[in-house]
Amino acid sequence: MLRPALFLGGVALLVFSMAVSVRIGISDIGYADLGRVLGSRLGLAVEPLPPLVDSLIWDLRIPRVLLAAFVGATLASCGAVLQAVTGNALADPYLLGVSSGASSGAVSVVVLGIGAGSLGVTGGAFAGALVSFGLLMFLLRRSGLDSVRILLTGVAVGQLFMALTSLIVMASGDAETTRAVAHWLLGSMASARWDGVAICATVTAAGLFVLWSCSTALDGFAFGQDTAASLGINVRTMQNVLLVATALLTAVAVAFVGAIGFVGLIVPHCVRFLVGPLHRSLLPFSALGGAVFLVVTDAVARVAFAPQEVPAGVFTALIGAPVFAVILRKRGGL
């Protein structure tokens, strides 16, 4: 079969891009140094690097590349799932207003100083995402999750939380808060550390497994909810499971790296050209594609304007918007 070979090729590409990405940055790291860092962690008898160089590789670079891979996989898979569930090719994890909710949560934590520290901000983002998602579900409780309604309600919820974020920032009037929030909203991997990787890895693995287990049902959504129901899919339950799963996954991604757009939009579209629209293949390949895309994009963001670091979200948009335009042209509409 072609697919396993192609998948292994994708995994190889991901490993390769991570191996290359981990080297590049403000100072290029040799594989010998990388070996010494890993070797000393494994307790091998290697001469350790100077603590700051070791810290650069072990505390910053490696977690950053891993986090990019997990977040990319998460966003791309969530995009593919939401496009199927809402029957809308423009769907994307940020569509549901989850990222805006997460922003509000993070900003509240920063401004109100609740449980400051890195976990505080992450926890705030997560709580905000859940609150916005809860509001979305509350507003949709009667409408039967019709695809257009999900989109419009998501946009409305998103706008509401954007306004809330602005309000909190304005009221605080603190220049440093404003800066931190603006930076975070652009989406950057600069804050990646091991704690984020651990949480992201766990949630991503569990979440993607749940999404993948719904592949058959997701295919059934291709012709809308009526057809899905006539194929024996419990549409309401399935939608709830999938929306909650994608909201959680997105919330975690947003909490750690901010709002990185377009990954969930363009990666699934590109992957469909490659492996077709059936979710059994589409989801794992989207995860791989998203991981590779974000790992590479973040590496580019690190070095393109050195010594300045550009937030990865800026680059995903710079690459994503034209690619998306090309996809739309090729498909001749939605």
């Binding site: 403000i26 160089v53 600069a190 300045q308």
Partner: peptide, 13 residues
Amino acid sequence: LSPKTLTSEQLRA
């Protein structure tokens, strides 16, 4: 090292 604020990598490097 940088005309703007320093990044974590720049400082360590």
